[in-house]
Computed example of a mutant assay.
Amino acid sequence: PYTFVKKSHRTSSFSILNKYISSALPNRTEAPVVPLNNIIPVLAPKGSLVISDQSGIHRGFPQSPEGKRAVAVLSFH
């Protein structure tokens, strides 16, 4: 399922550590260190709409090479 790390859109010791670690990685948006108890699976029936703050740590979990999902992303500044 889609997962989101609660409060990860805010500046914290975890966000600072992740920015420091990921600055040396090929993908600078990686988040290798997260508080495991803050990972929340977002479960909904097929075809449901999920609205999320994408500035927080998020991903599909577990990642599946043969899995597919459609995503529409809107960005407002």
Rank of each mutant, 00 (worst) to 15 (best):
P1I: 06
P1T: 13
P1G: 08
P1W: 09
Y2R: 09
Y2I: 14
T3Q: 13
T3F: 09
T3E: 13
F4M: 06
K6G: 03
K7Q: 13
K7P: 01
S8L: 00
S8T: 02
H9D: 14
R10S: 03
T11P: 06
T11S: 14
T11E: 14
S12D: 07
S12K: 00
F14W: 09
F14E: 02
S15W: 01
S15Y: 01
I16V: 12
I16H: 05
I16P: 01
L17V: 01
L17Q: 03
N18C: 06
K19T: 02
K19W: 00
Y20V: 08
I21P: 04
I21L: 15
S22W: 04
S22E: 09
S23L: 09
S23F: 07
A24S: 10
A24G: 08
L25M: 15
L25T: 01
N27P: 01
R28D: 05
R28K: 15
R28H: 12
R28W: 01
T29Y: 14
T29V: 07
A31C: 13
V33T: 10
V33C: 15
V33F: 15
V34L: 06
V34Q: 02
P35W: 03
P35T: 00
L36I: 13
N37Y: 04
N37G: 08
N38T: 05
N38D: 12
I40Q: 11
I40C: 07
I40V: 15
P41G: 01
P41H: 07
V42L: 10
V42P: 02
L43I: 13
L43W: 08
L43P: 01
A44D: 03
A44R: 06
P45D: 14
P45C: 10
K46E: 14
G47A: 05
S48M: 12
S48H: 14
L49T: 05
V50K: 03
I51G: 09
I51F: 15
S52G: 09
S52F: 09
S52Y: 07
S52W: 08
S52E: 10
D53W: 05
D53C: 05
Q54D: 06
G56F: 00
I57V: 13
H58L: 01
G60N: 10
F61D: 07
F61E: 07
F61M: 11
P62Y: 00
Q63G: 12
Q63C: 10
S64T: 03
P65C: 03
G67V: 02
G67Y: 06
K68I: 09
R69Q: 00
R69K: 07
A70G: 11
A72G: 07
V73A: 13
S75N: 13
S75Y: 11
S75E: 14
F76S: 10
H77L: 15
H77M: 14
